[in-house]
């Protein structure tokens, strides 16, 4: 689409970054598009051009958050560490009170906590969850290959279980019931079962 590519891509990302902040502060049910436009410093027309309705904006923000999830992106950077340690620090990085990480988690949590009504969004969530599971599976395979991970269970199943656990802990952390440190400690209880002694 030529019209799309001629636009500086940073404008769209600026809107999404602002949207992530506003939704992180107020939630999916209460956010106001005007606040996003104001924070991004763009015109309502431009916001409308990229995201013609609220649903489109929510899908865009979800995608934005999913692409930036620490545990998806950090996993492959740490080449020096063992597979187990790389996996552990990538998953630990999801629990962080810094606004950027917290906002990403909040958006994910807001979208996935309850049945998803928008079918297009449901599909995007399915794809993002699969991608997350794949990345964690690759991390486990790396650990199996370098001998830092040991499990008789299928790597894919272990990955699914770990990402579901991260989501369960994330809910509690975002709800103010546990600290990021608590979440990491609890995650370690399960992670340690696949660490090779």
């Amino acid at each position: 689409m030529p019209a799309e590519t001629e636009k500086p891509p940073s404008k769209r990302d600026r809107i999404l970054a602002a949207a992530a902040q506003v939704i992180g502060e107020r939630g999916l049910d209460a956010f106001v598009v005007k606040d996003i436009t104001a924070r991004a410093g763009v015109t309502p027309q431009l916001t409308y051009y990229h995201f013609p309705n609220r649903q489109a904006l929510v899908r865009g923000v979800f995608q934005y958050a999913a692409e930036r999830a620490p545990s998806v992106n950090l996993l492959h950077l740490d080449r020096e560490a063992s597979g187990y340690e790389a996996l552990r620090s990538a998953l630990h990085a999801e629990f962080d009170d810094s606004p950027e990480v917290r906002d990403l988690n909040l958006i994910w949590n807001e979208v996935t906590a309850l049945p998803i009504e928008d079918p297009e969004l449901a599909e995007a969530v399915q794809r993002a969850t699969e991608r997350w599971n794949e990345q964690v599976t690759i991390g486990i395979l790396r650990g199996l290959a370098d001998g830092s991970v040991e499990t008789a269970a299928a790597p894919q199943a272990v990955a699914e279980l770990l990402t579901a656990l991260v989501e369960g802990l994330s809910q509690r952390w975002l709800a103010g019931l546990i600290t990021p440190d608590d979440a990491r400690r609890t995650l370690d209880v399960v992670l340690s079962t696949i660490r090779r002694a």
């Binding site: 969850t129 579901a164 369960g168």
Partner: peptide, 14 residues
């Protein structure tokens, strides 16, 4: 916590 996470995915049909 794992049950909470799994339950959420089941509830969202994921």
């Amino acid at each position: 916590a794992l049950v909470d996470g799994l339950q959420q995915r089941v509830r969202s049909s994921l």
